[in-house]
Amino acid sequence: MDQLVTYFAMGGYAVFVWSSYAAAAIGLVGALVLSWQGWKAREREFEDLRAARRGQETQ
């Protein structure tokens, strides 16, 4: 337990070390999630358009 506390304290620099890793995690994970969602949204939009076009052709 004490060992863990010492570890997370990072020699007194805990705030700086962990915030850096948090900033990197937020940046990378955020970019991944937003990019994935953007792709899926475009895919849905494209499918809707295709359906609309099929509807137009059958009219």
Binding site: A41, E45, F46
Partner: peptide, 19 residues
Amino acid sequence: IRLRAELLAAKIRNARQSL
């Protein structure tokens, strides 16, 4: 992944125009 989205966006633009 972003490139897929960009290519789809271009296709969507074209499809809208033809529609």
